[in-house]
């Protein structure tokens, strides 16, 4: 079996060592360009995370993270995974070049425009395409590979057979998948909802992500009460606020995924570390040659221990495993 790495979220310099000790083999983080909040607002974040707590604030902090991680053989990726306007692009390029100078190992992107801009600017650092690329087919993956991408972070909603096909069609492409926390019902690169609005307005609830709202649901045409009730339940509060793909690790490792992302740059340090520890425990178990049935049970138990509730289909990254 190939080496299975955990890609862990970081937003504070003092998280580097604890995350590595918890089992992180890769670290990803975000960095705010100076003055971004004043100029554009964090609702229009440059890294798709909407609070100050999700980012490092200064290049010097990134340098320290890189130094600490590299000294322990762990790589660091910088997420600059939004699309940028003509005014924004030069300052984000400057920031990425600064990050390259302090030794980051890759930049996680979210779109073609910025990928092409970085190539034109002569960036040498490796480029990854994140979920903003919406890579659900081989042609898209090949397009990004041809444009200079060496790793694709597959979308949250891709299916395991689709991942196997990507691996078969493009054996030279590194693949990373989400494995724990932060599942969203909508496709990242296709979602235009804004988050963090209530934080700016200073009103409750501060956690106001659109897909987590308790919508009042009306079906506009005539249909049975049963259908109305079921549709109402499915469309209101689609977000589970949990998210887990642990039991898919059995198939994903076999499908050729080498890196597994834990979501939550904005989370408190303790939650990030515990998330990494949970995934590490499951990866270690997988490598003992355990049967699939026993492995699945261990994953369900790990979910229960972490979230203090039984796993539900709405929180599952790979709902096909429920059929």
């Amino acid at each position: 079996m190939q080496e299975l790495k955990i890609c862990a979220p970081l937003s504070r310099t003092d998280e580097t060592i604890p995350l590595i000790e918890a089992g992180a083999g890769e670290i990803y983080t975000g960095l705010l360009p100076p003055g971004w909040n004043r100029e554009y607002g964090l609702v229009c974040s440059p890294t798709r995370r909407y609070g100050r707590s999700a980012h490092l604030a200064r290049l010097e902090e990134l340098e320290r993270v890189v130094r600490d991680a590299h000294s322990r053989g762990v790589v660091v990726f910088l997420a600059q995974n939004e699309r940028y306007s003509a005014e924004q692009e030069p300052e984000v390029i400057k920031l990425v070049k600064g990050a390259e100078a302090v030794g980051i190992d890759a930049v996680i992107l979210g779109d073609v425009a910025f990928l092409l801009a970085l190539k034109r600017a002569g960036l040498k650092t490796r480029l990854f395409m994140g979920t903003g690329g919406n890579i659900f087919n081989t042609a898209s993956a090949r397009f990004f590979m041809d444009a200079g991408v060496s790793r694709v972070i597959v979308p949250r909603h891709i299916r395991i057979p689709e991942i196997r096909k990507l691996r078969r069609d493009l054996p030279g492409l590194e693949l990373e998948s989400f494995i724990f926390r932060g599942l969203c019902p909508y496709i990242d690169g296709m979602c235009r909802f804004q988050h963090g609005i209530n934080q700016v307005l200073g009103r409750e609830p501060l956690e106001d992500i659109a897909c987590g709202l308790d919508f009042h649901v009306e079906i506009e045409n005539d249909c049975s009460r049963k259908l109305k009730k079921e549709l109402g339940e499915r469309y209101s509060r689609r977000q589970s606020f949990t998210g887990c793909g642990l039991c898919a690790l059995y198939d994903l490792a076999d499908a050729g995924i080498g890196s597994f992302k834990v979501v939550g740059r904005e989370m408190p340090s303790r939650e990030k570390i515990e998330g990494v520890e949970t995934v590490k425990k499951i990866i270690d178990l997988l490598q003992t040659g355990i049967s699939k049935k026993e492995f699945m049970k261990a994953c369900h138990d790990a979910y229960l221990e972490f979230y203090e509730e039984r796993c539900i289909r709405k929180a599952c990254y790979y709902p096909e495993l429920w059929y």
Partner: peptide, 27 residues
């Protein structure tokens, strides 16, 4: 998304950013 307009008073810079189509600077 429809909620950006709610920031018109408190953070007009975000609203102006949201109006622009992010097509980069040329490449």
């Amino acid at each position: 998304g429809p909620r950006l307009i709610l920031l018109s008073e408190v953070q007009p810079a975000a609203v102006e950013t949201g109006k622009r189509v992010p097509l980069g600077a040329g490449a």
